[in-house]
C-alpha cells in the first residue's frame, strides 16, 4: 500500500515531465564552457519576465520546439515574473552571464516606459541587447456595439464635451500610452483606467463600466464576437483580421502604437552569438506550424534583426519621452 502510493506519486511527477526532453539541465549559473565559435553547445534557458499563461509566455512555449530544431540544443522555457517585467530585465542586464545561454523575452514599450516613468526600474532601455523582434499586436480602440459611437470621430467629439473613460491593460503599457497619444492628438478629455491585464479589462467594457477600451487587436477580435464595435486600429496599415476597420492614421491621428515582442541577451554578449540567435528566431518564424498557431492567436509576425530592433527602440524611445513629458509623467 505504502509502496504503491509512493510509486503513484513519482509517476505523477514523471507524467508532468513527459513533454519535456530530459536532456536539459536548467541551472541558472552553469559553469562557462564552449567557444563562441561553436555556440551553442549546450542547453539554453529562455526566460520570460512575466507570469505563465500570458501571451508572451504562450509565444515562448510555442517557439520552444522550432527553436530547438534551429539551434540544435535543448531550450528550457522558464518564468521570472515581477514588476511588469522589470525584475527580469534588471537581472538580465546586471547578473546574467553574457554567453548566449540565457535569453530573455523583452517587450516594447515596457522596456522603454519603465525606466522613463519609474526612476529605479533597475535597468536602462539601451542596456537591453536585442537579438530579434518577432511579433507585434497593435492597439485597437473598441466601444460598445449598441452605443452611440460609430467612428473614431464620434468618440472624440463626445470626449470633447464630457469626460470619457478608456480601459486598458496596465499602467505605462502600450494601451496606456495609446490612450495618452489619442488624447494628445485629438485634444479630447479621456481618462485612462488601467486593469490588471488584457482579459481583465474586457468585462469593464462588456459590463458598461468604461466608455471604451484601448486594447490589442487580439482581444478586439474576441470583443467583436461579443457584439462590440472596433473603431480603429493603431497600426501603420489596415490589419487582415479587420479589413473594414480604419487605422487611426486614416482617421486623422498620427498614432502607431501597440506591443512588440522580441528576445534579448545581456549587454556584453558577443555579436556572433547574437547573430546565431537572430538566425534561429528567423527560422522559427518560418516554421509553418508556429506561423499557423501564432496567427490563430492574432499575432502579427515580424522579422527584425538586432540592428533593426535597436533602431526601432531608439525611435520609440524618443516618441515615448516626448509623450510622457507632455503629460508630466516622466520620473524626476
Amino acid at each position: 500500500m505504502h509502496n504503491t502510493s509512493r510509486r503513484a506519486f513519482l509517476a505523477g511527477l514523471t507524467a508532468a515531465a513527459l513533454p519535456l526532453p530530459l536532456a536539459g539541465c536548467a541551472t541558472r549559473s552553469a559553469p562557462a564552457g564552449g567557444d563562441v565559435a561553436d555556440y551553442p553547445t549546450r542547453s539554453i534557458t529562455y526566460t520570460l519576465p512575466f507570469d505563465p499563461g500570458g501571451e508572451s509566455d504562450i509565444t515562448a512555449r510555442l517557439q520552444q520546439q522550432p527553436l530547438e530544431e534551429a539551434l540544435g540544443v535543448s531550450v528550457v522555457v522558464t518564468n521570472r515574473p515581477g514588476g511588469g517585467g522589470a525584475v527580469g530585465w534588471s537581472e538580465l542586464v546586471h547578473q546574467t552571464r553574457p554567453d548566449g545561454y540565457s535569453l530573455m523575452g523583452a517587450n516594447v514599450p515596457h522596456v522603454i516606459l519603465q525606466p522613463l516613468a519609474r526612476g529605479q526600474a533597475g535597468y536602462e532601455t539601451d542596456q537591453i541587447n536585442w537579438a530579434y523582434i518577432f511579433q507585434s499586436t497593435p492597439n485597437a480602440l473598441v466601444v460598445s456595439g449598441d452605443g452611440p459611437f460609430r467612428t473614431v470621430d464620434d468618440f472624440i467629439a463626445k470626449a470633447k464635451t464630457e469626460k470619457l473613460s478608456l480601459g486598458g491593460s496596465g499602467s505605462y503599457s502600450a494601451n496606456h500610452i495609446g490612450a495618452l497619444a489619442l488624447a494628445q492628438e485629438s485634444g479630447a478629455d479621456v481618462t485612462y483606467v488601467p486593469f490588471s491585464g488584457t482579459a481583465a479589462a474586457s468585462p469593464a467594457l462588456l459590463g458598461g463600466q468604461v466608455d471604451g477600451l484601448m486594447t490589442y487587436n487580439t482581444e478586439a477580435l474576441q470583443l467583436q464576437d461579443k457584439g462590440m464595435r472596433v473603431l480603429a486600429v493603431a497600426s501603420e496599415e489596415r490589419v487582415p483580421e479587420f479589413p473594414d476597420v480604419p487605422t487611426l492614421r486614416e482617421s486623422g491621428f498620427d498614432i502607431v502604437e501597440g506591443a512588440w515582442r522580441g528576445v534579448a541577451v545581456p549587454p556584453e554578449t558577443p555579436d556572433r552569438v547574437v547573430d546565431v540567435l537572430a538566425d534561429a528566431f528567423a527560422r522559427v518564424n518560418q516554421d509553418r506550424e508556429f506561423r499557423k498557431k501564432a496567427t490563430n492567436l492574432g499575432f502579427h509576425i515580424l522579422d527584425w534583426g538586432p540592428r533593426e530592433s535597436a533602431e526601432f527602440i531608439r525611435e520609440r524611445t524618443a516618441l515615448a519621452k516626448d509623450l510622457l513629458r507632455r503629460f508630466d509623467l516622466l520620473h524626476g
Binding site: 514588476g83 511588469g84 522589470a86 525584475v87 529605479q120 526600474a121 533597475g122 496596465g170 488601467p194 490588471s196
Partner: peptide
C-alpha cells in the same frame, strides 16, 4: 511594489527587486 492602478513604485526601501 508596483501599485495595481497607477503603476507607482511603493515601499521598495531602495531594493529594485522589491518592485515585484
Amino acid at each position: 511594489g508596483i501599485a495595481p492602478v497607477g503603476g507607482d513604485v511603493r515601499f521598495t526601501f531602495g531594493f529594485t527587486q522589491m518592485q515585484a
